[in-house]
Design a protein around this nucleic acid. Structure first.
Lengths: 235, 235
DNA sequence: ATCTGTGAATTTCTTCACAGCA
DNA sequence: TGCTGTGAAGAAATTCACAGAT
């Protein structure tokens, strides 16, 4: 019953989002020669609480040993398999500006499973250059290349303006997963996944909390100090 | 009663995370000359459903007009204020590799409120260069600069190795908000916020869903085709 | 004795559906 | 009538706390 649900609906989104963190943490432990790890230790290293970690891992199966913990190598394999990293995912990056340039050279992209196989740009001064060992092709060749190589994931690193158009072309060529760095919302048909990475969004979230912390400090001070200093903030 | 809670606990995290998206969407509308927008229209443009949008905005106050919608300019102001964008947030970036380079030149960083004021790197071949109009300083000057300029947000764009050390130094200088691009978990004292942007995490999440879609297609095919083709997948 | 895996309780987030105002 | 703002219902995620395996 619960197994059936696991297979059909899959693992909860919140759990999927944390699996990569666990995987990276486990890799660090493995490199350090650690063979076995408890949920408490792994959770701490990954920055979550141990009950959450255990519940997350329980969605993959029973890969721990009671009274002992988890075998690091085995868990790496299981988490990687669940995430689909045992397969090969060819990636294309469109838009080789500052960010695209960084992405093309980013070692993290070359980690298990992911393989950058094509770079595209419209700018003639960029096209023809070699970035991260790959030739930058003109955008016009997108359809041809994406169809011949079986591109699974398209990375949009263009400005906001052309992003939707580029995305449409990728999707038309059969790309079903898009990672969007452009500062805009991409609209895609059902069955296509988009994830958005937005630097200024993250900054704004930090600013919100920073502002609250500053406010809280003022109010706190106000509690100890004469009321007048608080101004209109409290109440 | 509910107002009190709003002031003390603040806006729900899930809402805060969406406000920047609304803000950007509103800016696009404003640039297009739209004066008034309904929750349905704005929600659609922002890629969320309208009930969620209305509930989100209701946490800021009652800034809409029943039967009419929201005034775009006014809402931009209110959302921006809530996020703390009416204040000035000086930002320092540590690690001017490919990514740091891209970040320093990223226009989104220069949007309302945020101002990159200092760049640091250890590499002597990078130190002294001018990137995005700013001189790259040696890491040794971090304490001096961060203390003299009132840096609010530190961006860690170093490799994983030095990231924690850099973060510790930033925090020691009074930085209370850190945006982490390094592929590792940063540990900070209470009262300091860290947000993590991880490119390979996003790819892995896409890979998970891509794998599931592929699997579903196979199972679906299996339903129409002879059982034998399904193999061990179904049941 | 120790540590996992998991039901149950709790909290948070989302969606519904409609009262109430323009 | 049209659209917002919001209680109430529902779904999802988190945390608790402990039974059960080694």
């Amino acid at each position: 019953m619960s197994d059936e649900q696991e297979t059909r609906r899959g693992i909860p989104d919140a759990t999927v989002a944390r699996l990569p963190v666990y995987l990276r943490t486990l890799s660090v432990l493995a490199d350090a020669g650690v063979a076995t790890v408890s949920s408490e230790e792994l959770a701490c290293a990954a920055g979550v609480n141990s009950a959450k970690l255990r519940k997350d891992l329980s969605h993959l199966g029973s890969y721990g040993v009671r009274g002992v913990g988890y075998d690091v190598e085995y868990l790496i394999y299981q988490v990687g398999r669940e995430l689909g990293l045992t397969q090969d995912w060819p990636v294309a990056i469109v838009g080789i500006g500052n960010l695209g340039h960084a992405l093309a050279g980013y070692a993290g992209f070359a980690t298990r499973g992911f393989r950058v196989v094509a770079l595209f740009d419209v700018d003639p001064s960029v096209v023809g250059r070699v970035v991260g060992g790959l030739l930058v092709r003109p955008l016009g060749e997108l359809e041809q290349v994406v169809r011949s190589e079986p591109i699974a994931i398209g990375v949009v690193a263009t400005p906001a303006g052309p992003a939707q158009g580029v995305c449409d072309r990728l999707v038309a060529c059969g790309v079903r997963s898009v990672l969007n760095f452009a500062p805009c919302v991409l609209t895609v048909p059902d069955g296509v996944d988009v994830r958005k990475v937005d630097l200024s969004t993250e900054l704004q979230i930090l600013a919100y909390h920073e502002q609250r912390k500053a406010l809280r400090r003022i109010v706190q001070q106000g509690d100890d100090a004469p009321r007048a200093r608080v101004g209109g903030v409290a109440q």
